[in-house]
């Protein structure tokens, strides 16, 4: 396996769930902002709801090939 990417530690709560949790909080905030506000709130909602797409593209761009 790609040892460089694999932590030898047994893993901890934050490294496993931290990323998904932050994205979840951001997504929910974005979904609600678009519902509750017009104008500037929309721009935030696009960034927040679109964050999962952006971060996936980023991981794809910097993936290591075997």
């Amino acid at each position: 396996m790609t040892a460089a990417r694999k932590s030898r530690s047994s893993g901890n709560w934050w490294t496993v769930y931290g990323g998904p949790l932050l994205l979840s909080v951001l997504s929910i905030a974005g979904l609600l902002t678009a519902l509750l506000s017009e104008g500037a709130g929309r721009y935030f909602s696009w960034i927040a709801v679109g964050a999962p797409v952006a971060i996936t593209a980023w991981f794809f761009a910097r993936r290591k090939r075997a």
Binding site: M1, T2, K6, V16, P20, A66
Partner: peptide, 20 residues
């Protein structure tokens, strides 16, 4: 799936994409 995510990815960093 969220519950299973822990045992399956605890050794991998978030966003790992391998093409082994």
């Amino acid at each position: 799936g969220v519950v299973l995510y822990w045992p399956f990815t605890r050794r991998l960093s978030f966003g790992t994409l391998r093409d082994k």
